[in-house]
Structures are given as structure tokens and as C-alpha cells.
Design a protein around this nucleic acid. Structure first.
Lengths: 157, 157
DNA sequence: CCGGATCCGTTTCGATACTG
DNA sequence: CAGTATCGAAACGGATCCGG
């Protein structure tokens, strides 16, 4: 968004104002799907985002109370970015985006089994994913990832 | 998005590529929530979007097969923009955005009763809204709007 | 009037280089 | 590693004009 636009009473304006930029989505995506948490991880994975742009987006998301920054206890050079409760509440939106993309992307880059599983039981899956991400996990990456949990639990559970 | 960025395998990239700009959201919002369908209606309601920007966004959305343009039968000066099936599939995303906004917007501009109703029965509400919009209706505006149907049906149905 | 297209000053982006 | 500084290029947005 180039310029602060007039505010209007509408159901999604607050969302659009808070985001308004696609890099912001990709940062949240990196956290939720891939468990990225540091400046360097975002920089290397977010389709080659420039460092100044990344810094400005992180600052904005922090200011919007979607992210919080905290020093890494084990490595004081690093800063850990995590989602706040407000940020965690974005997960359903991301999952619906993933759903739409899986359905319409000709290259179909999303794992269809996972998407189907989410659609089959949105309420419980939203909750499971939220709790996993809140605890520092992610959907696809790392030990304790959501897909790992689902594989353990099996398709029938 | 300024520049075509590197494509990567990720669940929401296709979505981000297709949108990438907040004006596009507002156009879809105008259709789904308020039943706008012409260039002039978008121009007057979308927070003062410039006509050249609006034209470029409509062209892009049409090219992405999210919108289709057709001449208005009753007034040949006008063009009617409507959502394709691919466009209709965006509705769940918009509704999750509305949900998030209602929860976190300090000015709380969204009708909370409607949002709560959607959350209480997402599957059926998504379907109802989709069919209403497909038929040319909208959520808030016009006769046969979704909120009107819900009022008629009553909160228990 | 409606739906754009064109022109043009201004803003913001983004690649690179640089610093703590 | 985590950011800032610089600067050219691109997109924006307001005004204006045009065809039907």
C-alpha cells in the first residue's frame, strides 16, 4: 500500500491495513509452515527478499503486535521472532490460502494429503496447528511437526 | 509486488502471486460483501482508488481468471464484473480475514453477529454465501443478501 | 455519463554495499 | 549475523482527456 488510504467500515479493512504487502505473508508463512524464526532464516528462504525490506516488514509486524522479537538465549547474536496470539489467529487464513492454492495452482506445490486432511476436520486441525506453532513447532518442518503428528496418529484418527 | 520474484514450492505462493496487492482484495471484497459489479461502483467505494489503478487491477484479476467481464444487457455502456468459480473459491479466505479483523480491530467495524454465525457453522455458511454470490447477490447488500436470508431463517436454523 | 487510457510528479521498492 | 545507507528503477496516484 503506497499511501494511507481512507478508512472505511468494512469487514476486512483491518486485515488489509495490517498486511497490505505480500512479503508480510511470506514471513508468516515461513514461521507457520517451515518453523523459521530468525532474520537470517527469513532472508534465505523468502524468495530472496532484500535485507532492508525484510527489516522493514519485521518492524511493521512487530509494531502491529503480530510478531514479538526476543534475544536467543543460546546465541545472543540472534533474535527470535515468534507469533503473538494475534499472529497465531492468522493461521486459519493461511490454511484457506493454502487450500485455494492447492486447488488452483497448475503446478500444485502443496502436499494434497495435508490439505485434504485439514479440510476434512477444520476445527480440530486449526487447533492442533495453532498449539503446535505456539509451542515453537511448524506444519512441515522440524521434529514434532504437524505432518509428523498426523502420520503418527494415522489417517483415521 | 514490484517484481516477479523467484518461484518456490510452498503452500501459499500461488495465492500470493495471484494477489500480491491489497487493492485486489478490496475489489473482491466489494463484490462478495457489498454486491458491487461495475467499474464505477468499485471506483466510488474502494477507498478512493485511482481509475488507472483500478483498471489495471481489474485487468489482472480477469487475466488470472478470477473475474470475468461481460456487457450489461440492460445498459450497454456498463460492464459487469463477476467472480468465476476460481474467484468464488476465495470466499473462505475473505471470511477468515473478516473473522480475524472482527477479533482484533479496536474499532470493530464488522457485524459481530454475522461473524459469530459463520464461525458456528462454517461449512454450511461457506456454501450458502458461495451460492448467493454466484447468483449475483452479496453478503450485506441488496435484496436476497446473506444477512437477510439468515434473519428470515432465524438464529436457530 | 461510463469505462477506461495517458501524462507526469512523487513515493516506495529493491539490489548492492556497508556497518556494528 | 542482524540489520542500515544509498540510489536507480518501478509503481503509484491525481489530473486530465477520450471514445461510445
Amino acid at each position: 500500500m503506497r499511501q494511507r488510504r481512507r478508512r472505511s467500515t468494512c469487514p476486512i479493512n483491518f486485515f488489509v491495513e495490517a498486511f497490505g504487502d505480500s512479503w508480510s505473508f511470506l514471513i508468516i508463512r515461513d514461521i507457520v509452515f517451515f518453523g523459521k524464526h530468525t532474520f537470517g532464516e527469513f532472508a534465505s528462504s523468502s524468495e530472496g527478499i532484500a535485507s532492508n525490506i525484510l527489516a522493514s516488514r519485521l518492524a511493521r509486524l512487530e509494531q502491529e503486535s503480530i510478531l514479538v522479537k526476543a534475544p536467543d538465549e543460546s546465541d545472543r547474536r540472534k533474535e527470535i521472532y515468534s507469533l503473538t496470539e494475534k499472529g497465531l489467529d492468522l493461521i486459519p487464513i493461511l490454511l484457506e490460502m493454502a487450500n485455494w492454492s492447492a486447488k488452483h495452482d497448475p503446478e500444485t506445490s502443496a502436499p494434497l494429503a495435508f490439505v485434504a486432511r485439514v479440510n476434512a476436520d477444520k476445527e480440530n486441525m486449526f487447533r492442533l496447528i495453532r498449539e503446535t506453532v505456539r509451542a515453537g513447532g511448524a506444519i512441515f518442518a522440524g521434529p514434532g511437526s504437524v505432518v509428523e503428528q498426523l502420520a503418527v496418529a494415522g489417517p483415521g484418527s
